[in-house]
Design a protein around this nucleic acid. Structure first.
Length: 754
RNA sequence: UGGGGGAUCGUCCAACGGCAGGACGGCGGAUUCUGGCUCCGUCUAUCUAGGUUCGAAUCCUAGUCCCCCAGCCA
């Protein structure tokens, strides 16, 4: 199996290679114990624990328990159970933010002493008011400039419990005018006279996330703190707290997109609402996207792992199609579920030519031909059996390969039968069927020369077991529940659970909790913990793909309201941003394009280089282009304020291109080198022997070689894919150590390709 | 609206100046004692407009759309 790769792993790989933290990698999974873990957490768990494993590091499990009013030890236990069940072990590395309360408190006093935090008596409402609105600066709190002594005294009294809840907070003293709302003197501590599930009544002040989380990461020497995108604007504060408290270890936060799944809900608030309103049976209701729910439904950890690896890790807001989850579940269960027969909607069938009282034990393999496993069981056959109501149609459409009057169908592993008679009750509803069987087809083999199109499952009436079957379907009936301001409860699928009394084959008497089965032609099922001796309960994990349903166009979960694809083309608004006076002057004076002038005048470093180059006698136009397209990029990529060379040096570059010594590609290389060493272009060219190869003979030979080495690519070109020329050009240039003149290469290539 | 982030098949993820690829999904077919599985074929994409370049999804500029931040939640 190849290691997964994504932008976070790439970054960490680079950090390790660069020797950051001595190459050590330590991640953490930091849930708050205020609810159960869901599949979105599974993504994070796989990412954090997976990365630790991949880089030979460790991953901590940490309860981010800083809010005593919502947290509960039951949730801690559930979280631990679920993480373990997913297959991850944290060993000694189980932590609680609540264990850090004393250290956090001390650092907070330190902040006060440094004048970087203060006790604020603003009410909650006032603090919101003072924070201001996005786009306008906030107002400083009247308590902002209390003395260190007063702040210290008040903070200590906060701790002692001298103040009422909500009467004051400890706030970071940052900047009420910051464009980042998170930086407008955020609260660090608040008063809560509440009992904490771990610290009891030891505290009545509790740190807030933005203060506790980053410091907890630091205490634990976390190297890479991975979280979801909504914490992006909190990163500045994260870094501020770490820097201001002067803790020795500095972790780095990186954000990735949280998982969203279609046809379900994922937020803790909504999940909790479903549980509290008893719209589901609990956190582990199989309809819930919780780990516990999926587990109870019969989804395996392997399927979840596969799902997590298939969805990838990126920063795009995304809604993964539930069909993908269902796909990996089927893929996984297909290999591990023995096949058995169950009839969910039984109707009786009398085999009229089968001897009364006779019972045959037919051999039925547990596994289909494509699963390399062995084993079989006996299924009893007798004169009266059940088949599924859906497998009979009195007036069948064409291609209905099941039971209907006069038609032949195979009973799986048994006999081919022919439907002779349809018996109805007083209401005209189907009561039972009468069939005849073909003794020559014992075991289900078709008579020579005959093709039996349909095969259906059945159970012997006298031997069948009664079972409760819980048929679960998607939690919601629309892709994005609660979209467009609707209450998500309105989008719940009313048919997310239907319970039927089924007839199942007698071998299932030994079905034990936790076992997977496939009920042939129906779906994958899982033995629920509610199972009691003689009263089995099966959960439908996922239905089999139903080609027939698709054929007749009544595919089950209707793809809800096709999303209107919003118009992509954005009409340009015409009035482009106006140039600043400086840029305008620059453009006019040197006949530059608006873009060039805009870029050059936007950064002093560029403007300085421009002036310098001009002063050294360079032509304005090529320098401007170089500056606006290439130099600016290097500057940004290297996060430089200023280039390590002067305008005169830069001015030497364009003539080298104009004279043919350098191709534009080589010129970029030289430029990059100038940024690294600050050397002059001519020196770099000389030292690296970069001068361009334009000699036709040399290029012709290289082209011929590349063409001979890549017949496939050439064939693709001849087949009409003009784009491959680029690839060929690249190969030729590469074969000449990057020094070939691309124009010459192109020319010769086209000639040789005919 | 100030700040931050994102834009590639219907969906999710790749491609890091050189052949836009994979998976799910859709459609069609083969196979089949599961209308399952498997196999084959096929469908659809670089937000827009300029620029740089022999060559741009990728670099530069301007714009458009979407998401996040205004809890004493995390």
């Amino acid at each position: 199996m190849t290691e997964p790769s994504d932008f976070i792993r790439d970054m960490i790989g680079a950090d390790v290679a660069a020797g950051l933290h001595d190459g050590r990698v330590c991640t953490r999974f930091p849930p708050e114990p205020n609810g159960y873990l869901h599949i979105g957490h599974a993504k994070s768990i796989h990412l954090n624990f997976g990365i630790a494993k991949q880089f030979g590091g460790v991953c901590h499990l940490r309860m981010d328990d800083t809010n005593p009013t919502t947290e509960d030890p039951e949730y801690v236990a559930a979280i631990q159970r679920d993480v373990r069940w997913l297959g991850f072990e944290w060993g000694q590395n189980m932590f609680y933010a609540s264990d850090y309360y004393e250290r956090l408190y001390e650092l907070a006093e330190g902040l006060i002493q440094k004048g970087r935090a203060y006790v604020c008596d603003l009410t909650e409402a006032d603090m919101g008011e003072y924070r201001g609105k996005v786009g306008e600066p906030g107002k400083e709190s009247p308590y902002r400039n209390r003395s260190v002594e007063e702040n210290l005294d008040r903070f200590r009294r906060m701790r002692k419990g001298e103040f009422k809840e909500g009467s004051c907070t400890l706030r970071a003293k940052i900047d009420m005018a910051s464009p980042n709302m998170k930086m407008r003197d955020p609260p660090l501590y608040r008063i809560k006279h509440a009992h904490h599930y771990r610290t009891g009544d030891a505290w009545c002040i509790y740190p807030l996330y933005d203060y506790a989380h980053c410091l907890s990461d630091s205490f634990e020497k976390i190297t890479h703190s991975l979280c979801t995108m909504e914490f992006e604007s909190a990163r500045e504060l994260y870094d501020w707290v770490v820097a201001a408290t002067e803790v020795p270890h500095v972790p780095r936060q990186t954000e990735f997109a949280r998982l969203n799944l279609s046809y379900t809900v994922m937020s803790k608030r909504r999940l909790l609402e479903l549980v509290e309103k008893k719209l589901v049976r609990g956190w582990d209701d199989p309809r819930m996207p919780t780990i516990a729910g999926l587990r109870r439904r019969g989804v395996t950890r392997e399927a979840i792992a596969e799902f997590c690896s298939r969805i990838g890790v990126a920063k795009n807001l995304s809604i993964v199609d539930m069909a993908l989850l269902e796909h990996v579940i089927r893929e996984d269960l297909n290999q591990r579920s023995p096949r058995v027969m169950a009839v969910l909607k039984p109707i009786e069938v009398l085999i009229e030519n089968y001897p009364e009282g006779e019972v045959e034990q037919l051999d039925a393999p547990y596994w289909p031909h494509d699963v390399p496993k062995e084993g079989s069981r006996k299924v009893p056959f007798s004169r009266t059996i059940y088949v599924d109501r859906d497998d009979f149609l009195e007036n069948p459409p064409k291609d209905f390969h099941r039971l209907s009057p006069g038609k032949r169908v195979r009973l799986r592993h048994a006999y081919v039968v022919t439907c002779k008679e349809v018996i109805k009750d007083a209401n005209g509803d189907l009561a039972r069927l009468v069939c005849t069987y073909d003794p020559a087809t014992r075991g289900g083999s078709a008579p020579a020369g005959e093709k039996v199109a349909g095969t259906i499952q059945w159970v012997s009436a006298a031997h069948a077991l009664d079972a409760e079957v819980r048929i679960y379907d998607r939690l919601c009936r629309v892709e994005s529940p609660g979209d467009g301001g609707r209450d998500f409860l309105e989008d719940l699928n009313p048919d997310s659970l239907s319970v039927v009394q089924a007839k199942v084959e007698p071998s299932l008497s030994s079905a034990a909790e936790g076992q997977h089965y496939q009920f042939e032609r129906v779906g994958f099922f899982f033995v629920d913990p509610d199972t009691r001796p003689g009263a089995p309960v099966f959960n439908r994990t996922v239905a089999l793909k139903d080609g027939w349903a698709k054929l007749v166009g009544k595919s089950e979960p209707v793809k809800a309201e096709a999303k209107p694809r919003e118009a992509k083309a954005a009409a340009p608004k015409g009035d482009a941003k106006e140039l600043t006076p400086a840029a305008k002057a620059l453009a006019e004076q040197h006949a530059l394009s608006a873009d060039e002038a805009r870029v050059i005048s936007s950064e002093p470093a560029l403007a300085a280089l421009f002036e310098g180059a001009l002063a050294a006698g360079a032509a304005a136009k090529p320098i401007a282009s170089l500056l606006a397209n290439d130099v600016v990029r290097e500057l940004r990529a290297r996060r430089l304020e200023k280039a390590p060379f002067d305008g005169a040096a830069l001015g030497e570059l364009p003539p080298l291109v104009a004279s043919g010594t350098l191709s534009t590609k080589l010129a970029k290389e030289v430029l990059a080198e100038m940024f690294v060493r600050g050397a002059r272009p001519a020196e770099i060219v000389k030292e690296k022997g970069l001068s361009q190869v334009s000699d036709a003979g040399a290029v012709e030979a290289a082209v011929a070689q590349v063409l001979a080495d890549n017949p496939d690519t050439v064939a693709r070109y001849k087949a009409g894919n003009a784009n491959v020329v680029g690839a060929l050009v690249g190969m030729v240039i590469k074969s000449l150590q990057g020094r070939a003149n691309p124009k010459v290469v192109n020319e010769i290539l086209k000639k040789q390709l005919g």
